[in-house]
Design a protein around this nucleic acid. Structure first.
Lengths: 338, 338
DNA sequence: ATGAAAGCGCTAACAT
DNA sequence: ATGTTAGCGCTTTCAT
């Protein structure tokens, strides 16, 4: 192996300065409760001259902390995650923490393997970001011995130190109200699968908004399926075939919206002139794929940032506190051409 | 601080098995040159029962290796990098390495800070991915004591263990030949800044391709500017105003292409019916922003993957070898609607 | 105000 | 085939 040049050690500094290693250690760690200015300066100068860099391994071995955090997510290549990752890294580096990042492709096996690896590497905590709801099957997490902060998920495991969630309900309200403001009168909703928390909350928001507008809720106005563009196509087709009166579609997520637009255009309808479409900017970050599309954007950067913040505070807390839950608001990103 | 549950140690295993810690260590590290099957099994069983997880800190302290790699890039949020990061992580985890990732925003100061942090954390090597060419100013890198693999850059520093580059010239040839195949006859080129290696190589490729087609190269056919969409707009405007005869534009990168298309459309020209446009899928990953756009895509995933591979081999090599240089080919991604 | 010494958990050379 | 031992570089009581 390529030999690594050996670093200066506190031992060398101690010898050079004519003091003990304990003294050097105290000074370098600013625990200089009772150290004379003279020796302090001497040691600091020498450390600087010798270009001293502390050996984190040695330190971690005794302190049992590494100032490293694990970030587990399905796939950094999915446009949903880079912002989360960036937010996490920004917050972490601010506090001197580093981030080890891991892609699981949503595989439980890989997740468990990573949790073990991260444990070996002695990370101080883990930020966990999933793409989809997934209940149960958290064996790996449950046995994990460091604090965990969940992003966009709301179930309980023993070591959750916090959760950072998105206010899906208020996001839905924003979307529907935007369509009303734009002058659309009859807004239908294509929802995702109701076994997911997000879909439930988004539906609630839709209902709330139309009822608030004085419109009676009617089952015919919504269609429940999955978060795929194919479903957006199908559902839109069904609305058209059933002769449901609508001039705008609110979509449970961006994939559904993409499908809906496709069907509308195929049917000779113009978007947004004939039919308004808006969706939750969810999986594929439609705002990036089509900067012209109006969407409800999730605060991904902030999620990563706040989650990491929560985690660090849990790590550094003297006492274990009850898990904190942060609810972040979405942002309406308006189609430029409207 | 929240107390971390203490792990099983080899000492405990040794006591339990009635052997010495050295024996346990050897067995667990598969350096079991001369260990009886009996004790080997006994130790392995006990280790398993006790749910033993090695303490990487302690190991690293003596081996001086952490099985961790640093990945330094400008910004994971820039669509150019997630694929690189994913490629790197895939290759790394295959070999049991973890990746610490760092965003520099192309700031030298941040880069140097990260190199110091990574050194403290004792990473075994660094993969460095810049967004743009940047000559000189490599103080931080030069003094770095672990092997470095450069992505998409070709300058020399003492500890480069390798470079993974893109074949820009052949990529240009591909782009121009594609336009010829599509029936376009007069292809002009809007280039980026000639102080960058990429721009130089791409221009060479353009020249080679049109000369190969039997067309005489003429300075009026190219315009040199920068890698921005504004420049794409301006240059296209100039071509039109000067009355240069063209039916296709090859753009030095995707931003330029976006600008070019904008100007063409404003001038009432249809793309690709009236004018063909193709660009190098460079900074903003046009293929993602507009899946319909034909582009020359850089092999980003592969860059990350191969760079990490090179790095690992450099790390594990007994002898230092001369830096390896890998040249990767681009891929033509054809507009779906053509 | 400073030093001595124990030990974090492990590897590796050397004994036996 | 297995055990003994000396560190790796640092933090942290406990003395002085």
């Amino acid at each position: 192996m390529i030999k690594k040049v050996r670093n200066t050690t506190i031992k060398e500094i101690a010898r050079e300065a004519g003091v003990s290693i304990a003294t050097v250690s105290m000074i370098l760690n600013k625990k200089d409760v009772k150290i004379s200015e003279a020796t302090k300066n001497k040691v600091l100068t020498i450390a600087n001259e010798l270009n001293y860099i502390p050996n984190t391994m040695a330190r971690s071995l005794v302190t049992r902390r590494t100032k490293t955090i694990g970030l587990i997510m399905p796939d950094i290549t999915n446009p949903f995650f880079p912002e989360i990752a960036r937010g996490a890294e920004d917050r972490a580096s601010k506090e001197g923490y580093s981030i080890i990042y891991c892609n699981t492709d949503d595989s439980i096996a890989r997740e468990e393997k990573y949790i073990e690896t991260l444990t070996e590497k002695m990370v101080d905590g883990i930020v966990l970001a999933h793409s989809s709801d997934r209940e149960g099957d958290n064996a790996g997490l449950v046995s994990c011995r460091v604090p965990i902060v969940l992003i966009d998920r709301d179930y309980d495991i023993p070591n959750v130190a916090g959760k950072v969630l998105v206010n899906n309900k208020s996001g839905s309200v924003k979307a529907v109200e935007f369509l009303f403001e734009k002058g659309y009168k009859n807004i239908v909703y294509i929802a995702g699968p109701m076994n997911t928390r997000t879909a439930k909350e988004r539906l609630e928001g839709y209902k709330k908004a139309i009822i608030h507008k004085g419109i009676e809720f009617n089952e015919r106005l919504i269609k429940i399926g999955d978060y795929k563009s194919k479903w957006g196509e199908t559902a839109t087709r069904e609305f058209l075939d059933e002769g449901v009166l609508f001039d705008a579609i609110y979509c449970g997520n961006d994939l559904i919206a993409i499908g809906a637009i496709k069907t509308l255009k195929a049917a000779g309808l113009r978007v947004p002139q004939d039919v308004g479409v808006i969706g939750f900017d969810d999986i594929y970050m439609a705002s990036m794929v089509d900067p012209e599309l109006t969407t409800i954007k999730q605060p991904n950067y902030e999620m990563g940032y706040r989650a990491t913040e929560l985690l660090i505070s849990a790590i550094e807390q003297k006492e274990k506190q009850k898990p904190e839950k942060i609810l972040l608001e979405t942002k309406l990103i308006v189609r430029k051409s409207t």
